[in-house]
Amino acid sequence: MDAPALETRDLTIRFGGHVAVDKVSCSFRSGSLTAIVGPNGAGKTTYFNLISGQLKASAGTVLLKGEDVTGLPVSARTHRGMGRAFQLTNLFPNLTVAENVRLAVQSRARVGLDLVSLWSDRRALIEKAEAMLARVRLADRRDAAVASLSHGDQRKLEVALMLALEPDIFMFDEPTAGMSVDEVPTILELIQEIKARANATILLVEHKMDVVRSLADRIIVLHNGQLVADGLPAEVIASAVVQEAYLGVAAA
C-alpha cells in the first residue's frame, strides 16, 4: 500500500491562547486536486505554512510520501518535493523575471553553491527557465525587473517559480486573488495542465466557488482552525452546514 503523497496528523499551532490550526488530520492522494475553503481567518494559509515549514507546529506531524518532515526546515522540504506559490506575491523585486525563474531552476538542479562558473554560461538552466516563462506566458517580459510587472504578471511569475522547482506537491494559495478578469483563465489553464500530468498532487486555497467547482476533485472546509467538512465538491457545497455558515460568506 502506497503512502499518501502528503498527510497531516493532528497538526496544531497555537499563538498564545489562540489555536489557529486545531488537530487537522488529512491525507492527500497522489494525482488529486483538493480545494481548501473556509472564511477569512479560518486558518487556511496557516495550515499551508505548517505544511511547507514556514511555521513550526505546536503539535502533530507532517508526512511527505510517508516520511516525517515536521522537523525539517523549509529549504529541505522544498528539495523533497514541496512547491508553493504564495498568496501575497513574494518575489525578488530588483532582479529580472528571467533571473527569478532561473533561481528556482538552479535550486532544483542544486547548483547554488557553485562559485566559479559563470551564471550566464549555464545554458541548460537558462533554457529551462525560458521554457517555464513560456508556459506562464511571460517570455516577452523576461528582462523586465520584477518590481515593474503588473500584479497579474507577478502572480504568473509566482506560479512559474513553483513550476520550475518541479515539485510533487503544488500548493496554490489563492492564485487568482487580485487578478483582472482576463488574466484569470491563464492561471486556471495552468492548474489544469499540471493536474493533467500524472502524480501531481495539488492543494488549492481559493475563495471563488466557480473556480473550486470546476477544478477540484475534493473539497475540505476549515473553520476556526478545525476541519469541519471533507468530501466530493458537490456534496460539500450542498451540505447545509457549509452552505449556511461558510460558503455563503466565501462566495460573496
Partner: peptide
C-alpha cells in the same frame, strides 16, 4: 567572478527576499 556565479545570484536573492530564497530551497 563570485558575484556573477550561480552562488552570487543566490546571495542577491537572499538580500532581496530571504524568506522566498529559503522557500525556493536555499
Amino acid at each position: 567572478r563570485i558575484v556573477n556565479s550561480p552562488f552570487g545570484r543566490v546571495l542577491q536573492a537572499i538580500r532581496e527576499n530571504e524568506f522566498r530564497a529559503e522557500a525556493l530551497g536555499y
